[in-house]
Design a protein around this nucleic acid. Structure first.
Lengths: 143, 143
DNA sequence: TGTAAAGTGAAAATCACTTTCAACAAGGGG
DNA sequence: CCCCTTGTTGAAAGTGATTTTCACTTTACA
């Protein structure tokens, strides 16, 4: 799976006439072996531990590239920081965001998706993407 | 309705030991008689027309206060600007956001709300708020 | 009215990115 | 291999939205 994503990215780079670099390899490896929903700051700090010479800007640029290539997705959860999550092909999920501890859980609900399509249709609206987030307290924090 | 919101705000101000000022009155009046989903920039420009001496910071501060008092709600639609919408008591709606012209339509769907509650329950999660946005092309723009 | 506490506006500061730019690497040729 | 065109990088400066600071008002109540 990690291998597959690396291939997708390699192919994307090639197709666009871009170059494969040491930095991108390191950032990709670190991103892929990190938990989902990492903020750029978090990823940058994690990277710095082993690669103190990698610049902030490079991390931003690489993540943007990962998103373009289709292996990552940009997300905003209202805390003012952009997070990137791993993209699994053909899968879409929504989020439960704990407002106390920041934990992000994922869920899928086919019925909700279908109802969204219905709503859009009734407004003659063509859906490109959607965002559904439930904010509140996770099991741990509500005790 | 406008009257009711002004009262809610007045009560909030009082309860918190804050002060009622000319600026807040003007900003509130302008906010209430504006369309929903105004960005701060838009509101500020509208205000300036009649009150050129009101500062940017005061508009920001007032809107934050409106949100705290419960008569307004902060919203992010991914265009990098915070928008404030009017809160009608006991009503919750979601949004259709046109990615081309920026139009924001509202809709309500009780079934989706119910399914959200079910999802949350199955994760032992306590919902405080939620956000559902469908991004795409509105009827006008999809032609 | 006096005055303590809150509010205001202008400007500076902050925050999360983005861009700039000079120095460096990649990946083809030749 | 070496060249050389073109993309890449890191540091630092720049952005744009929002916040904070601060000296100066205003407000509300004693």
């Amino acid at each position: 799976m990690k291998r597959a994503k690396k291939k997708i990215f390699r192919d994307y780079i090639l197709e666009k006439g871009l170059k494969s670099t040491r930095q991108r390899d390191v950032i990709l490896e670190t991103f892929l072996s990190s938990e989902r929903h990492m903020s750029i700051e978090e990823l940058y700090l994690k990277l710095r531990a082993k690669h103190p010479n990698i610049g902030y800007a490079t991390v931003y640029r690489s993540l943007k590239l990962f998103a373009e290539s289709g292996i990552a997705r940009e997300m905003q959860f209202g805390d003012g920081q952009t997070r990137y999550e791993h993209v699994e092909e053909g899968e879409h999920h929504d989020h439960l965001v704990c407002t106390r501890c920041g934990t992000i859980l994922e869920f899928e609900n086919e019925t909700i998706e279908q109802l969204q399509t219905d709503v859009a249709a009734s407004h003659d609206f063509l859906i490109q993407t959607h965002k559904l987030e439930l904010y509140g307290l996770c099991a741990k924090c509500r005790k």
